[in-house]
Design a protein around this nucleic acid. Structure first.
Lengths: 147, 147
DNA sequence: TTCTTTTTGCAACTAAGTTGCAAATAATAT
DNA sequence: ATATTATTTGCAACTTAGTTGCAAAAAGAA
């Protein structure tokens, strides 16, 4: 994750923001660009620290993340270690095609299980589903930590 | 959850603690009894507040929970809302037969999916599993909040 | 440019949990 | 039953992640 590595141009970032009727502020553009260049979910802290190096206040970054999340432009992941992570929504606002995540309890690394699907199976006919599922998190020991 | 409702006697709680070579202190006994009488995972805060009403310090409760967890007597759940939850391990230390959990993103209620199993399915033959899975959390909208 | 609304930076605050340390307690030895 | 020793506790102070109020600054519209 690097704000300087602009794999997404300012114009592209602006277009994404305008598409959800959000004002194009420097902070939001930086957040969108940073998230775009990330290969794994980014923690709020990482992002706040990175972008405070560019002059943005941490409260602004937290607020931007919340706003972008409410506009369905970014997905907020609560992976259970008390630290929130964010990633750019797959289709910038469609809210669709999100994937499960895996977190290693040993090293803390988070990976996107983009190529996996999860299936909830009832052990008996009598039990009913708890509701509609929107996010799946799997925790365990990653291959690197196991070997 | 109620420390007064002793579905588990002091002697039984002591036996559980001794089984894992833990000293039988009032705090640990109260924690074991409280968790035993709970029907859903209990947050650290709930437990700390409940038991501080009986004179225990919150740091003692947090420490007890950590110790019992390290002894595999209780399971620590990180369900993603920055609040830790605990439940008595199914077989007091066996570490086996734990179940997935469901958390409603609307009302925050947590339910144990004791009667469900989860299956991770690779969408293609090429992708490999991320590691060994020890905990599954599903987040979504519960039936009560959807209807 | 001017105006109105939204956003930002700052500093102070909150919530959840942790830590150092002296005093208290549990298990053990006498 | 008492003394001994290692563990645990209570307290207060601290840490970390995130939030909030508010005046100043910036964005978009007229």
């Amino acid at each position: 994750m690097n704000a300087a590595a602009q794999t997404l141009s300012v114009e592209e970032a602006k277009a994404i923001l305008k598409g959800s009727d959000l004002r194009c502020t420097a902070a939001r553009i930086a957040v969108v660009q940073s998230l775009h260049s990330a290969t794994a979910p980014v923690t709020s802290i990482e992002l706040a620290e990175l972008l405070s190096g560019y002059g943005f206040d941490k409260s602004t970054i937290y607020r931007s993340l919340t706003e972008l999340n409410e506009a369905d432009l970014v997905v907020r992941l609560d992976l259970g270690d008390s630290i929130r992570r964010f990633e750019l929504a797959a289709n910038y606002g469609s809210g669709l095609s999100e994937h499960p995540h895996f977190m290693c309890v040993d090293c803390g690394e988070v990976t996107c299980l983009s190529d996996f699907t999860f299936e909830l199976k009832a052990s008996s006919r009598k039990v009913q589903a708890p509701g509609t599922i929107s996010e799946v998190l799997v925790r365990g020991h990653c291959t690197a930590c196991t070997s």
